[in-house]
Amino acid sequence: MLEIDKQSPLPIYYQIEAYLKQQIDDGLLKPGDTLPSEREFSEQFHVSRMTIRQAIMNLVNAGYLSRQKGRGTFVASQKIAMTLSGLTSFSEEIKHRGMRPLSRLLSYEVIPATDRIAQQLSIPNQTPVYEMKRLRLADDHPLALETAYIPVHLLPDLTQDDATGSIYAYAEQHGLRLKNATQTLEARSAGPEEAKLLTISPNAPVLLIDQRTYLEDGGMFEYSRSLFRGDSYSFTVAMDRI
């Protein structure tokens, strides 16, 4: 049991935060476990609820805990470790980790490429492209929001049903050979609608990844923007000294 040291230079909320983090790291609190309420913690540690709230929110923002409105605070699931090397699809990555991938199609339409999309795909303005917005899940747990753009002439028969599965696998089954991709990563906060779809708190940390996927002949296959939950992912980059 934690004994609060009120004479310590460390803030009380930090002492509580470190204690709970150690409980999680040691496996005494396991993924899915429900934490006591702020009131119960306040009575247990003899501190204000505001102090408890600060410790809890820091752990939520760090990915150790998750809050669900009306249900409480839970120990978050272990983060999915992604390696940013090798071109794999979301479905392939999730299956590799023993989970069931699912794509919930939020919107699907053919649009004329705007200046920005045309530039990203290296195609003329107004070229017809698929715009597909998908919520990506693993074992029914929302992990990412993705908006993808693909020139229609590359996959002229792509249907909404096809878009709920792995588009990479569909493309390769239809004779396209994918070669590589470039990614740009940026940290930001989730907006209200994004947070609702990802079941996270508004302004929770997310990672924005812009990806450009290339065909073996050097042409562009896809441009996508994906928002990954900060509490569910960690990314590892392999680098060689040059």
Rank of each mutant, 00 (worst) to 15 (best):
H96M: 13
H96T: 14
H96D: 15
H96I: 08
H96Q: 15
H96G: 14
H96S: 15
R97W: 11
G98Y: 10
M99P: 08
M99V: 04
M99R: 13
M99L: 14
M99T: 04
M99I: 06
R100D: 13
P101C: 10
P101H: 12
P101S: 10
P101W: 08
L102F: 11
L102T: 13
L102R: 15
S103D: 13
S103K: 14
R104E: 15
R104A: 14
R104D: 15
L105V: 15
L106S: 08
L106Q: 13
L106Y: 06
L106E: 15
S107G: 13
S107P: 09
S107C: 08
Y108A: 13
Y108N: 09
Y108Q: 12
Y108W: 14
Y108I: 07
Y108S: 10
E109I: 04
E109W: 04
E109R: 14
V110A: 05
I111P: 07
I111L: 12
I111M: 08
I111K: 09
P112Y: 04
P112C: 10
A113V: 04
A113R: 00
A113M: 02
T114H: 02
T114I: 03
T114N: 06
D115C: 03
D115T: 08
I117T: 06
I117A: 07
I117C: 05
I117E: 06
A118Y: 00
Q119F: 05
Q120L: 12
Q120G: 05
L121F: 01
L121M: 02
L121N: 01
L121V: 01
L121K: 00
L121I: 00
L121W: 01
S122M: 09
I123L: 03
I123G: 01
I123M: 02
P124M: 05
P124Y: 05
P124R: 01
P124S: 05
P124F: 03
N125P: 07
N125M: 11
N125A: 13
N125Q: 14
N125C: 07
N125D: 12
N125I: 10
N125L: 10
T127L: 02
T127Q: 01
T127D: 03
T127V: 07
T127F: 01
T127C: 00
P128A: 06
P128D: 06
P128F: 02
P128Y: 04
V129T: 04
V129F: 03
V129L: 07
Y130H: 08
Y130S: 08
Y130C: 01
Y130E: 09
E131L: 10
M132A: 12
M132S: 10
K133E: 15
K133H: 12
R134E: 04
L135P: 02
L135E: 06
L135D: 02
R136H: 06
R136T: 06
R136N: 10
R136D: 10
R136K: 13
L137Q: 08
L137D: 01
L137I: 00
L137W: 01
L137E: 05
